[in-house]
Design a protein around this nucleic acid. Structure first.
Lengths: 201, 201, 201, 201
DNA sequence: CATGAATGAGATTTCATTCAT
DNA sequence: GATGAATGAAATCTCATTCAT
């Protein structure tokens, strides 16, 4: 049991998450973090290697939670399309679950994609790879069983990823008011993918 | 002859665009810009108020070019769907036309959305408003003439914006290789929107 | 034991006082201050908001000491003229007590009178107000009891202030050698104010 | 005739006088001067060696005008005291005649007394020397002819200088409202210096 | 574990001054 | 004479990070 009350470490992470997402990584100083966390600056260095590691931890943790959600999705569904619908729901619901962390990832990561070893790049790649696998299986199966149109799987998977990530981003960054978008997105995809007349209901 | 060839100002803008997109705004120093532009640091301050204005100018100009593309789209088309297809094409083609500027906007703006008066926020809002108007007219007309399914226009417009911006971003930030995505996106939307059997061809 | 001997803050103040009075506020750099105080530059910013606050503190403190002297003057005197003589003595003696601070205030403040919220303006106004009150009471009482000629109190008070401040300034700025000026000033005022034949002795 | 219309040089001097007195020497930039004078910066360097020379010229000219006033004072007067009264009047009237120049000198010079070769120090010394000569002659004569009390001439001269300079400064820097001070100052000195009963009128 | 104090390394910006034309 | 453009040389200030205690 390392420290019965490791509040401080959590306080730091929480303070940093908020500040980073409000003012950006560079716009946030370690002094601000320490003040918000009600500790002194050196405490940060006791718990973390430095500002960078603090950021890295936050982002890693955010993605880890995202992966957990992905893993929590039901493997067996009545139709393949349900899986896609679940994915859409997940990407919208997670924003409400951890808004600050999503905001931070969505705002800070785009500027950090150039570094191939950075947390952002690595996690974004993992995220895309997992989505790609998930959706490829899904589409392959759906086409095989005649549920979906025989689309170009590779390109359609990419397109769906663009859509999913786009939904997460727009909602996470609060750029648009997007009421009723979940149902609309599901319907949009259904009409586009599903063969039967039911798809056009 | 004042400014027979005032390349320097352009040199600065170009150098800054590259550096900002490579290393981020905060990660770029005025010294680096001046070196890349082969001038001395104070020249930046002769032509611009400061680093901020330089950034602002670049972003403004980028969006101005984007708006020009939007305005250049044909007003009259045989079908309403053509307009959507054109929009998809525009958002993918513009990336090839001005890759550095798009990269910069896509990477730097997400972190600058909190400031309601900043270039990024203002232009993103304008961009969305224009897309909303454009797409609303398009869908309304398409539904009226029986070309489209009678979808929820407001939400579908939002969804299409998410898709368009998503395409631009993914391609602009080079996150994924997205070969054949243009045709796939067009087809995806066509199947989802167009009533006639031709839509499923 | 926080600040067992935080000389450094005092060292900075002393170094700055000397340098500001020698080379002026603008002519003094924070680097020079740090060298003279045998610290590194950022230490200044640890203890003070910046160069301005350092200056402000020094001036405020100087005036505070002056006010303390004013308050230390005996309230009860045998004659009212004694009060004026005490005031003359105070304005000359204080220069010897804190020459650097007086030099700084006398040299730096005149150039800073335009800013109505600056330390200089505010303190100069306070200084004058206090002298005005002090001298008005004194003259009123002296005239009432027949000690002084029935002069125009308001204008005479102003004149005496001009004289007092002038003495302080000339001595403080070391413009003239002014030997025996104290006695001469006292006598000059006595002859001018006091009715009895003794006044001309 | 060097340039039929050397307006520009005068424009520069006037602009600089105003700006220096408003914002101080260091607070004024050559760019501001050039803008106020409606010329471009290099023109300043055509007419003057630099910012310093511009300042030097203004101060020199100000003192030259002051000396001219001093020289313009009547050599022959009915009483010696008239000379002192004239001096008091001169030091108050000159402020109204050239307020900006007096303000500049009064505000900028105190901070420049340390440099023994600077315009300020040199002119202040000249000013004091001339006043000393003038007043010494005056007091010596007045005492010799029985008009004045037999005061300590050297110290009284110094005191009168303090008073004269003080009056000029207070009025020039607009620190106090000093209505009716001229008459009061004259009366104050008369009572202090003149033997006859008339002095106490 | 924690802190007050300090620092090294730089970043942005300013400005008097000067070219080239 | 005059100007647009440029520059050398700083100056102030910031900040992540680290000691000594």
């Amino acid at each position: 049991m390392p420290g019965l009350r490791t509040n401080k470490k959590q306080d730091i992470i929480q303070a940093a998450t908020l500040l980073f997402s409000e003012k950006g990584f560079d716009g946030t100083t370690t002094l601000q973090i320490s003040k918000k966390a009600r500790i002194t600056e050196p405490v940060i260095y006791y718990h973390f290697t430095g500002k960078d590691e603090l950021f890295t931890r936050i982002i890693s943790h955010t993605f880890a939670q995202y992966y957990a959600h992905l893993d929590g999705l039901p493997k067996k569904t009545r139709t393949e399309f349900e899986k896609i619908a679940n994915l859409i729901a997940l990407h919208l619901d997670i924003v409400e679950e951890m808004p600050d962390q999503i905001y931070l990832a969505a705002s800070a990561c785009p500027a950090r994609l150039k570094d191939p070893d950075g947390v952002c790049r690595r996690n974004i790649e993992t995220m895309y790879r997992r989505l790609k696998n998930y959706l490829t299986d899904c589409l392959d199966a759906g086409i095989a069983r005649g549920e979906f149109y025989p689309v170009d799987v590779v390109a359609t998977v990419d397109l769906l990823i663009v859509l999913l990530v786009g939904l997460l981003r727009q909602k996470g960054l609060k750029v648009m008011q997007i009421k009723g978008i979940k149902q609309t997105a599901v319907d949009f995809c259904r009409r586009s993918l599903i063969k039967t007349e039911l798809g056009h209901g």
